[in-house]
Simulated assay, not measured.
Amino acid sequence: MLNLNSPLSPEIWLNDLFASKAVQQGGVIRRKARDVERFVGMELFLREIHRRGFQVAENAGQIVIFCNRAPVRWLSGPVPLS
């Protein structure tokens, strides 16, 4: 749900997000999922992620954006039952 009372348009919010130093250096950034929904909307956000060739993960209400095109390799998985 977009916040119609926000002083920032979705485009300005996305521009600010992707202008950060971490993005420029190919790093990782994190935002609350509710903020992404509130200020941009998930559909527009995911389109921009795809356009840039980035990857994104969500866990416990946090969005983690990998701001490069390198593959993501998960180092942990389910704990085996003994």
Rank of each mutant, 00 (worst) to 15 (best):
G53K: 03
S6D: 13
A60Q: 12
D16R: 11
V40A: 14
S6V: 02
R34P: 00
E58K: 03
F66T: 01
P7G: 02
F18R: 09
G53W: 04
Q62K: 09
A70C: 05
L4W: 02
G77N: 11
I12N: 04
L2D: 06
A22E: 15
V40K: 06
G41A: 08
L46Y: 11
R73G: 03
F45M: 10
F45N: 06
N59W: 03
V23D: 01
D35S: 12
R31M: 11
I29G: 02
L14N: 06
D35M: 09
P7W: 01
G61E: 06
K32N: 09
P7K: 02
C67L: 07
E11G: 03
N3F: 00
L8C: 00
R47E: 15
C67A: 11
R34H: 14
P10V: 09
R30S: 15
V72A: 04
G61I: 05
M1R: 01
V64T: 15
I49K: 03
A60R: 10
K21Q: 14
E48H: 02
S20H: 10
A57F: 05
F66K: 01
D16H: 05
L2Q: 05
V56F: 03
A22L: 11
N15Q: 14
R52G: 14
E11F: 03
R73S: 10
R38D: 15
N59M: 08
N3Y: 00
P80M: 12
V23A: 01
S6F: 02
F54R: 01
R34Q: 14
S20F: 04
H50T: 10
V72G: 00
F45W: 13
Q25S: 13
V56H: 02
K21Y: 12
V36Q: 04
A22Q: 12
D35I: 01
R52F: 11
F54G: 02
A57Q: 09
S76Q: 11
Q24A: 15
M1W: 04
M1Q: 07
R52C: 13
R31N: 07
W13I: 07
E43Q: 12
G77T: 08
P10A: 12
V79Q: 12
L8K: 03
G27S: 05
R34S: 15
D35H: 05
E43R: 13
V72C: 10
W13E: 11
S6K: 01
V79S: 08
G26S: 04
K21W: 10
S6R: 00
V64H: 01
S82R: 12
